[in-house]
Each structure stands twice: as structure tokens, then as C-alpha cells.
Amino acid sequence: MNPRITMAVTGRVLSQLRRDHRTLAMLLVLPCLLMTLLWWMYNDSGPIFDRIGPALLAIFPFIVMFLVTSVTTLRERSSGTLERLLAMPMGKLDFLVGYAVAFGVVAALQSVLAVGVSVGLLGLEIVGHVWLLTLVAVVDATLGTALGLFVSAFARTEFQAVQFMPAIVVPQILLCGLLVPRDSMPDVLGAISDVLPLSYAVDAMTHLTVSSSAGEVWGDLVVVAAFVLAGLALGAATLRRRTA
């Protein structure tokens, strides 16, 4: 890896995003709007927003980043720019980490906004530290990025890339504890839930709403971060300089 090249990729991805106002709006504004919608839905139903809001703060950035990343990297494959880059002195990890850092920066902005709106305007009650909540959201978004980078290796078109969304993202949402607490699921599903990264992200968020102790949150964060690294490593392993 070469920091100059990694940062070149990051800088380029960010300038492309800056040009693309619609995607930027989707990345930054949409999670805030969705949180507002949720708050409004449960406005007359007691403390439900406080219960599920934090989980959704983990889920929205994950979904959005997964989608944007898998489609953008696939576009890079199909346009021939990836082939050109890999014929240049570009390490595979330069490429992947460059993307991950760029989207990580966007994820950080997105999470600060979403957490700010939820806690500041919508009155989401959390007991733990707000900065820790933001950190969890950023790591979740990076998880979406890493998985998006990984699955783009298995798609040949942008259309196929989008189809990974129901296959990879939706099961994680169903099993993460948002709909049924993880310990009340049937054993098999509970075990599956235990090996899915989003479960740990949601656990961390939920923990922050009920307790101010940070120990368990850090434990969950480490698990999610390990999935991020594994996603990047698998992404690098599936990126081929030579293609058929």
C-alpha cells in the first residue's frame, strides 16, 4: 500500500460525490428524513421511538452506504477504469481503502447529522454518550461500505449489484433484534443472528439507550470493526488484476 495512491483514490471519490448532488442529498439528508418520519409515526404511541430509534440509527447508514458503495465500485469495473488502475502502480488495498476512507468520511458526516437531528430535534433519549452513539453509527456505515465493496466483486452489472441488497442486507435487518429481541428468537435464528455484524451494531446502539457504561459498547464495536476489516480483506482477495 502507498498512502499517496490511497489518498488519490479518496480525493477523487469525494470530488465525484461533490458533483453528484442527488447522491449527496441521499447520503446526508435521507437518514435524517427517515428518522423524522419514524418519530412522527410513533408520536402518539409512547416511548417506542426511544426503543427503536437507536437501532435505526445503526441500520440506515448501513443500508445507504452498502447501496452506494456496491454500485459505485461496480461502475468502476464496467467502465474500464478499474482495469486501467490495476495496470498502474495501484495496490488492491489502495483502491479498497481509498474508497472506504472516502465513504467513511461521508458516513461520519451522515451520522453526525442523523444523530444530531434525532437527539437534538426529535428528543431521542439516550443514557450513554452522544459521541459514542455517533462513533457506532460511523462504524456501521463503514461496515456497509466494506460489504458493498465485497459484493461488487460478484456482480457483473449494476442491476445485479442492487439485487444483493435483499439478499445480504434484509436478513440482517430482520435478525438484528429490531423486530424481535435476539434472545427471544428460536435458537437457530438466534445463532445465525450471533454471526451477523449488524446484530452487534444494533446491540451497541440499544445499549447506549439504557446504560451509560461503555464497556459492552466497545466490545460490540470491536466485533463490527473486525467485520469491516474482514470485508476489506475479502474484497482485496476477490479483486483480480487479470480477468478472463
Binding site: M7, A8, V9, G11, R12, S79, G80, T81, M90
Partner: peptide
């Protein structure tokens, strides 16, 4: 096929590849 970034300007494309 052209293998450049359509959403960047000519110089932005070249500056990126030059940095690489």
C-alpha cells in the same frame, strides 16, 4: 472503451491518474 471518469473534468481525470 474510454476508461476515464465521466463525472470529472479533463484535468481532474488527469490529475488523479498523475497522482496514482
Amino acid at each position: 472503451d474510454s476508461s476515464v471518469y465521466l463525472d470529472l473534468s479533463v484535468t481532474e481525470n488527469l490529475r488523479f491518474f498523475a497522482r496514482v
